[in-house]
Design a protein around this nucleic acid. Structure first.
Lengths: 225, 225
DNA sequence: TTTCGTAATGTTGGATACAATTTTATGATC
DNA sequence: GATCATAAAATTGTATCCAACATTACGAAA
């Protein structure tokens, strides 16, 4: 970690790596993130670690209570609904704004990503799926909205990984993605928004059901690394 | 500043005071926020100042480029549209979710706030208006959604203050608030959402028009304190 | 005069050191 | 054995110090 990066980038780098581990489930909800342990692990002082934790807090992935160790945000059914309803509200907005500026080349690119999704292993679904939607949303030209959606996707991925493979999510998702591409090709905003909303709402309900039947994760703290 | 606060609260306190000054326009967009100057002004070291700047950055009120001084986010028409379209998407969602849990007492409280709005001086409109909407949204029980809306309102207030008084915003706004209260009393979700959406979209368009005719703020840096 | 390169100044990022708070461990008392 | 008070250890918050980067000032050359 020490070398090979610009001066003000340590916090961002640490945040990115922690984010990956939290989203992937390598670090479970409720785990303690001690500043000292993290600093030693990444070979830096506690200062960039603190900034990284603040970044993750702003994104909603960790909770940083005053004078106490940071805690990885716990998963809950209410939180899942909170996140996915926000997605169902924000993403169709971005798509609708992007549609008039969307080029056929961009739609083709999204279609290519969808082919990758159907061919690639399941553990890459999260990243590819985000890339698919990002391609369709980007032309909206709204930096704040896009950042908001990215942030929500990171939160949503934690729930997705819990359920992926356990339920029949992939089949319907692929079909909906193709429907979405068709609506985009036709530049049919109402249809595209409706398909996307239904896509997210169905994912929400599928994941909520899967979340209830999950193998209960160890509720105890679990010393963090 | 030194006394009268808990140990881990300096950053939050500083952030709150800076936020007020930015939102109220006391510090203009583009102003430099030097860590040293802020630390001296608040009578603390640069460390809590840095955290405060990160908080404000996460909220989108300042830009913190690496190795350079923080800058108060500049206002722009595109940014205004970005913010208000997100509000028009998020707030009706919160209202719709809150409506089934909304009590008559809460609606009465909102009506009381609306009476205050119509009586109070214009410079209190921002706070009271936020309180009015907060009262109606709170029962939705979605912490992330509510925090998102609060954050957007702080951003929106900057544009509101630019235009307040210059255009006929107050009249329509009061009427729309009363319409909204009626729809809530009738527990008519579709109507309430429609009224709120129109309320925000009209505000967006009014403020966008006012923004074009604004007295051009000094585009130069302006040493910030 | 303009432009480019270099030095001086100012400002931020990170490391170390210390103070305050929380947490855990210990022991006394019921 | 359980509970509460007290003390030790661990952990965070803040201050101070140094190094790296950026900006500005200055001067030389075209």
């Amino acid at each position: 970690m020490r070398d090979g990066q610009q001066r003000g980038a340590q916090a961002g780098e640490i945040a990115a790596r922690l984010r990956d581990e939290i989203v992937s489930g390598a670090i479970e909800g409720g785990a303690r993130l001690g500043q000292d342990a993290l600093a030693e692990r990444f070979g830096v002082s506690r200062m960039p670690v603190r900034e990284a934790l603040r970044l993750l807090e702003a994104q909603g992935l960790v909770d940083v209570p005053p004078n106490r160790s940071a805690i990885v945000a716990r998963l809950s059914r209410d939180d899942l609904l909170d996140i996915f309803d926000m997605r169902a509200s924000a993403e169709p907005l971005a798509l609708g704004l992007a549609l008039p500026h969307l080029t056929n080349a961009q739609i083709d690119r999204a279609a290519g990503i969808q082919r990758d999704i159907e061919a690639a292993p399941l553990d890459r679904f999260g990243d590819l799926n985000a890339e698919f939607h990002r391609t369709l949303h980007a032309p909206c030209g709204r930096p704040r909205l896009l950042a908001h959606i990215e942030s929500l996707n990171a939160l949503a991925d934690r729930y997705l990984r819990l359920a992926i493979g356990t339920m029949d999510h992939q089949g319907p998702s692929d079909a909906e993605h193709r429907e979405l591409l068709e609506a985009c090709r036709a530049r049919d905003e109402a249809s595209a928004r409706a398909v996307l909303t239904a896509h997210i709402v169905r994912a929400r309900d599928t994941l909520a059901a899967a979340f209830e039947n999950r193998t209960p994760q160890s509720g105890k703290p679990g010393k963090g690394t």
